[in-house]
Design a protein around this nucleic acid. Structure first.
Lengths: 342, 342
DNA sequence: TTGAAAGCGATACCAA
DNA sequence: TTGGTATCGCTTTCAA
């Protein structure tokens, strides 16, 4: 074995230092290095030795190898979640941020796994390769099979955040059907009977839009009100086209999927001379700042996501007691905020 | 060693299957399992054996252990990037998505590391523990020290995306100073002389807002125009307060940081009876859909982020040739889109 | 065509 | 107080 000389200048591509290198430089064994660097309380190491080890580690720029460590330990504290595959709003961003912070406090490392390529069970297998201690899956896309794969690979907790519970996994149920229901109910109560529901043309949003539509349907079931699906892309001319044939649709209200689509559509309607809310009532969802700034002020369905702290606590509980019966929580608070557009 | 009996029902908490288990069940050696499952072309395995191995792997629900694999291999194909610590706009979301997809095509695994706790060099050390083959760092917050730590730990490429290059790392320079400069220039050219610049009160945005402000300053340096800093939180009443004292500020133009703050402020100004653009010109940045829908239509600075494909290619190049001189690319295309508000 | 065994880096048990 | 060493799961060289 060649001893690589320590170069004073830092341009030589040295090989990655290991704990053995630290041990060599400090003149102690690898065991001692491990004890010192991990502050092992089981063993008492003399102060001079500690110093020498720390010194050597610093000098070499030693950083422990997570893979080796968790291989040896037989477990990691990695919480994996697939990265969202579509632009997320401020609500969700904040939620993720909070969650990461809260899990960080509990000494977990959160890792968002790049969403590309594998789908369904293959995705679950890819995640399982990392042997995360817990997996958080937003949206649907994970089936009972996937849950089984993850658990078999050592995941002590699998939590889904989505419209439906999945066998074997804890579920934070985000009932988007209820969002639609609230919106539909509100419009119906305001005397509207011919209700349009916007379905975004952008892919990946069906998970949310389909249940929202269904919620509106349920809200007016058994009444004389009708529900009409409206496909709308998030583009000005798509909205203009829809607005152009608006009067032929004979609608007196529209649930616009969310505030952004609502703004897009409302603008197009106004440009077309359709009076809001007189001729057509408009309601969005998400309660973005945006809506408050529009004229008329946009009515919306305010959504309350679970706090990151709560979810972090759930994860921690589940990790400690993997055998427990899967928890099921209804977490999407949906309340109508009535402003001027409806 | 206790042989765990195969249970027909799947509720028993079996231990995680390893390649040795697969080998045992298939009646072959672990080497053979590895050959088969990795489609090793160096060795030819008989068809019946292959089948038996695949069968056994499927039956046990075997998933390889990434840590063990990369430990043995001495490298991984993980590209790490810290997860953004603040709500990101659609621009950045799309960029990340593209990037993940493009790197996925090149067989890298993208992992967003949860931003909590460690800062500065400690963060770099935490990332280094995962031994990523490449690290992508948006924003500032990584210094030359951090780069050195990462490289010493085997990262073959470190790429920063931010306002300033960092020694030793490739840099995708996002020149926010230029954004401010374009905006300032535009306002000046439109005859405005008393220019306000919005600085968001929200933390974490200084990285962008400071250089944008500086850009405006530079644009009017040596002229008779003045620049006034305006602190604004992303809340209605903050905007209302600012609007209430607007006339006392004597400004005839404002660069509102971005389109969202611009919308917020413009609405407040209009509510206060300040005519836009007659009395005060307003320009935002980011060219969101939003701005097109406002009345007057919002002038903005359109930003062009690098395509994910380009960045993926840069990463791949850098990984293949770690010794190469750090590349430096100006990637933030900034062009004024003049609409009606200025 | 298949198997035995070394070794990646870190940890923790048992001795000394 | 410190060191030697087996071990985690996997890949790969060398032999058989």
């Amino acid at each position: 074995m060649v001893q690589i000389p320590k170069t004073p200048a830092s341009s030589a591509p040295r090989s990655v230092p290991t704990s053995a290198d630290v041990a060599r430089l400090a003149g102690v064994s690898r065991a001692t290095v491990s004890y010192v660097l991990n502050n092992s309380s089981a063993v008492r190491i003399s102060e001079p030795t500690r110093r020498r080890v720390h010194e050597a580690a610093r000098e070499l720029g030693y950083v422990p190898h997570a893979a080796a460590r968790s291989l040896r330990a037989g477990h990691s504290r990695t919480v994996l979640m697939p990265a969202p595959g579509f632009p997320v709003g401020p609500l969700y961003s904040r939620f993720i941020g909070e969650l990461q912070w809260a899990l960080g406090r509990l000494d977990y490392t959160v890792v968002q796994y790049g969403t590309a390529g594998p789908q369904g069970d293959d995705a679950a297998r890819a995640w399982a390769e990392l042997r995360p201690v817990a997996v958080l899956v937003p949206g649907s896309g994970l089936g009972p099979q996937g849950v089984e794969i993850l658990k078999r690979s050592g995941a002590r907790a699998v939590v889904t955040l989505g419209p439906e519970p999945v066998d074997g996994a804890h579920a934070l149920l985000m009932d988007h059907e209820a969002v639609g229901h609230r919106a539909g109910r509100h419009l119906y109560d305001r005397g509207r009977r011919r209700i349009g529901v916007v379905l975004p043309a952008e892919p990946g949003l069906e998970v949310f839009s389909a249940p929202r539509l269904e919620g509106v349907r349920r809200a007016v079931r058994g009444t004389d009100a009708t529900v009409t699906e409206l496909h709308l892309a998030y583009e000005e001319h798509s909205a203009a086209r829809l607005a152009a044939r608006w009067r032929s649709l004979g609608l007196d209200a529209v649930f616009a999927y969310n505030d952004e689509y609502a703004m897009l559509l409302m603008r197009a309607l106004q440009d077309e001379g359709v009076a809001v809310p007189a001729e057509t009532a408009v309601i969005g969802a998400d309660d973005l700042m945006l809506g408050r700034l529009l004229r008329p002020r946009l009515s919306t369905v305010h959504l309350e996501l679970p706090s990151g702290r709560e979810l972090a606590a759930l994860v921690d509980r589940a990790v400690h007691d993997p055998g427990a019966r899967p928890e099921r929580h209804e977490v999407l608070g949906a309340t109508v905020v009535h402003r001027e557009s409806s």
